[in-house]
Design a binder for these strands. Structure first.
Length: 540
DNA sequence: ATGCCAAGCGCC
DNA sequence: AGGGCGCTTGGCAT
């Protein structure tokens, strides 16, 4: 049963499939949704981020939804049209402790009629060559959007005290605004002393290159990998300065002030924010949380963090996509890369890893390129699968994930350069530029099929986990085991100590289920490593 | 004041 | 000549 929520001038209409509509005032919406939730409907709404946070704030958790905006983006990509942008309604966005209303002024009467949009989407899905897959993807994406709102609502448990302590240990006490922490100041002085050319503009990359060259160091940039090659007493303190400076600016006291309140970090997740189907974040940087600060993620008293990681997710996804039985056998244990070594394809785990990553990213140089032929001999199906995706991209064609997310068509400028290069009398430099472009787009489509299908697996995993965890009789979401963090192939559940075993089982069962849902029958396994810890940093 | 870009580096 | 991101800073343009 689907129930469409439609915001109208006179209130919110709840329209079920029989066409019967109930009108409720905004103030009664949460109670009305809670009442109908007992029927396990799939709520249809324009945009989960518009509707769900206020329901959660009112203590209402819903099981299923259909997010029209996410589905429109997906279907538009498949059909080669632009997604519609008139979803309009104000979206309350929590950033830090403030609530920002992003109101784009669209009058309610001009908003799309969600019932009509749904009907059109269902017709469009039914007309696809793979309607079942697209339906699964629709459900998984929508479940992910629910989970994202729930994670923001519950927040990641964060110890301000532990964070402040680690900052103080690394940098020195919090300085006055605008001042340099003691440790940074000392390192900057060490760099100046070692260079012996007076003041060094250490915070400006462009100026720093000039200064280093004046001091006789042959550098073209100040990237850490380039500096590491140089034997000079200024390098070590400079690299350390860089690392600590980054800690200060990206995840220092200012970040703490802005993003952590009431012992919770509440990032804004953006489901579907990446073309491949991965999530993005809007502020807070939750998907790039440096290992340096993970010791500040601390479970509440009496609670634990259950950290689950899908082991070598992407190569396993590739093996399943390609139906590569040999790679499936190599991945039968928990460590696929060791399995590849055991198969005799390559000599070391590092070679296996670098080689597989290169195959999926399109690496063409160094160790990765040297290992690739060996992998291609041992696992021809997997390697030719990504090669085919790359060739398609080089020709300007689109590729598709397992459940049917399609890659975008290359931009007009790309197609123009290809056309120019193949035209009569094209110059050698035009041809070279076009080849470079084509290779680059091929690397994108090569990776798209793997990264995008991995995102589908992960969304399905999330959907299964949140479904298994939920116990309505145990009260509100934050008071029972709940998801608090998702990073592409990793999930964290915050739960009472006594629930660790159940949560662990839920994470593993849902992983196995995700493989069946996404791939049907596949010999490829998707092991999940699980660690129950007090602090995130203890997980690995 | 505001916007945009590049550099650099964090994550997967 | 390695895929996808976000974030901060400095520096230039408007």
């Amino acid at each position: 049963m689907r129930i469409v929520l439609d915001r109208r001038p006179e209130g919110v209409a709840m329209v079920d499939e029989s066409g019967s509509a109930t009108l409720v005032g905004e103030a009664e919406l949460a109670a009305a949704v809670a009442e109908r939730e007992a029927e396990h409907p799939r709520w249809v709404w324009t945009d989960t981020a518009q509707w769900y946070p206020s329901l959660l704030a009112a203590g209402v958790r819903v099981e299923r939804c259909h997010d029209l905006k996410l589905l429109d983006a997906l279907l538009a990509l498949r059909a080669g049209r632009s997604p519609r942008r008139d979803w309009g309604a104000p979206r309350a966005v929590a950033r830090g402790d403030a609530l920002f209303e992003l109101d784009d002024d669209a009058p309610a009467s001009h908003l799309p009629n969600p019932g009509e949009v749904l009907a059109a989407q269902l017709r469009e899905i039914a007309a696809q060559p793979n309607p079942r897959d697209v339906t699964v993807l629709a459900a998984a994406e929508s479940a992910g959007a629910l989970a994202a709102a729930e994670m923001q609502h519950c927040g990641l448990p964060w110890s301000v005290e532990a964070h402040d302590q680690l900052l103080t240990e690394a940098l020195g006490p919090r300085p006055a605004p605008g001042a340099r922490p003691e440790r940074l100041q000392r390192l900057a002085e060490q760099v100046e002393q070692a260079l012996g050319i007076g003041r060094v503009p250490i915070d400006s990359a462009a100026e720093l290159v000039k200064a280093l060259r004046r001091a006789g160091l042959d550098v073209s940039s100040t990237r850490s990998w380039e500096l590491e090659q140089i034997d000079h007493p200024a390098i070590a303190p400079l690299l350390e300065y860089r690392s600590l400076y980054r800690l200060l600016t990206a995840n220092g006291w200012n970040w703490l002030d802005e993003w952590v309140h009431d012992s919770r970090f509440r990032p804004v997740y953006v489901p579907g924010g990446v073309v491949t189907g991965r999530w993005a974040t809007d502020g807070g940087g939750a998907l790039q949380l440096p290992k340096q600060v993970r010791s500040a993620v601390v479970a509440d008293d009496g609670w634990m963090l259950v950290v689950a990681d899908a082991a070598q997710l992407e190569p396993r996804i590739l093996a399943a996509l390609a139906g590569d039985d040999a790679m499936a056998r190599a991945g039968a244990g928990v460590d696929l890369y060791s399995g590849i070594v055991a198969s005799g394809a390559v000599a070391s785990r590092d070679q296996a890893k670098v080689g597989m990553l290169g195959a999926m990213y399109g690496g063409t140089t160094g160790e990765s390129a040297r290992v690739l032929p060996k992998l291609a001999r041992a696992f021809p199906r997997a390697i030719s699968y990504v090669e085919a995706a790359a060739r398609a991209g080089e020709r300007g064609e689109t590729v598709s994930t397992r459940l049917g997310r399609t890659s975008p068509v290359p931009p007009a400028s790309w197609r123009e350069r290809q056309a120019a290069a193949s035209a009569e009398g094209a110059s050698e430099s035009d041809a070279r530029a076009a080849r470079t472009d084509a290779r680059s787009w091929g690397r994108f489509t090569r990776n798209f099929v793997v990264q995008g299908t991995a995102a589908e697996w992960a969304l399905t995993w999330i959907a299964g986990v949140r479904q298994r965890l939920w116990r309505p009789e145990r009260g509100s979401l934050p008071s029972q085991p709940h998801l608090v963090m998702f990073v592409h192939d990793e999930l964290i559940v915050h739960c009472p100590e006594d629930d660790v075993a159940d949560v662990t089982r839920a994470l593993q069962e849902a992983a196995a289920e995700a493989a069946r849902v996404v791939f049907g029958s596949t010999p490829v396994t998707f092991p999940v490593t699980v660690a129950a810890v007090r602090r995130y940093s203890e997980a690995k």
